[in-house]
């Protein structure tokens, strides 16, 4: 198969970028999209040009590093996969494939397709945890958790923090990401003591980082590689309302 890749090139955060077109010929249908970028990069290197910078690491869809918008879709045309799991059999031979970075104000572009998603880390640092020091834990079976609850908590905890939800959202909203963490911890008995505080703190930092609000369009759910459902956003709203009502003025 042969393709043309129309790739966003940008030298650094402050520069303005533009598209460059490259050719990828003799591509195997079972080659992954990132492996095509590898080959294009080797060609660029040999031609004395600078290769395309793109984020990737595990290449099996779990680390959340890869972050391309392929033909206008974060993580490309396949359902429930990350950019690194997109295979060339998903495209038409001869197609021009447009590759862009995730675009959102809170995710500044560092170079080409590489963005800075540390805003997500800051949200987690504000409250995406259960405060338990090492060594303080009781026996794991001392706290039974129903199987359905544990499974639903896993569904939420499965979020890989890739940021595709933000990239897909017309408002660059991080609500799906935040709701996944709030749901994961809020479902479990261990997470109850900090439940109110957690949702208030995380939303506060989410807003401060410059993410937009949720208008419930559902684009995030559609592109999420781990199938985090929109219903978690509703749970977050519910938790947030409860937490705001319960909040006492003196608590910080």
């Amino acid at each position: 198969m042969n393709f043309k890749l129309k790739v966003w090139r940008q030298a650094d955060h402050t520069s303005s970028g533009s598209f460059e077109t490259y050719e990828a010929n003799n591509v195997n249908a079972n080659q992954s999209f990132m492996e095509v970028l590898d080959v294009v990069n080797d060609d660029l290197t040999k031609a004395g040009k600078e290769p395309i910078a793109f984020d990737h690491d595990c290449r099996e869809g779990i680390c959340g590093t890869c972050s391309c918008v392929i033909n206008g879709e974060p993580h490309g045309p396949e359902d429930k996969v990350t950019s690194c799991q997109v295979y060339m059999r998903s495209f038409q031979d001869g197609e021009t494939i447009t590759v862009e970075p995730f675009r959102a104000k809170p995710f500044p572009i560092l170079k080409d397709l590489v963005t800075d998603r540390s805003a997500f880390d800051k949200i987690i640092q504000a409250g995406g945890f259960i405060s338990v020091n090492t060594g303080q834990a009781p026996d794991a079976n001392a706290l039974p958790i129903g199987r359905e609850t544990a499974e639903l908590a896993f569904d939420a905890a499965h979020c890989i923090g890739c940021g595709a939800c933000v990239a897909a959202c017309k408002n660059s909203s991080a609500m799906l990401f935040v709701s996944a963490k709030v749901t994961h911890l809020g479902l479990l008995p261990q997470g109850q003591p900090e439940r109110n505080r957690r949702s208030l703190k995380m939303v506060e930092v989410m807003d401060a980082q410059g993410f937009g609000g949720c208008t419930n369009t559902g684009a995030c759910e559609a592109v999420c590689p781990k199938g985090i459902p929109l219903e978690f956003i509703s749970r977050l709203n519910r938790d947030y309302i409860t937490a705001s009502l319960m909040e006492r003025p003196e608590s910080e």
Partner: peptide
Amino acid sequence: IDQCAAQGVPFGREY
């Protein structure tokens, strides 16, 4: 296992 369960790791569970 105790530590991870306390952190909220959703281990597989029986009914």
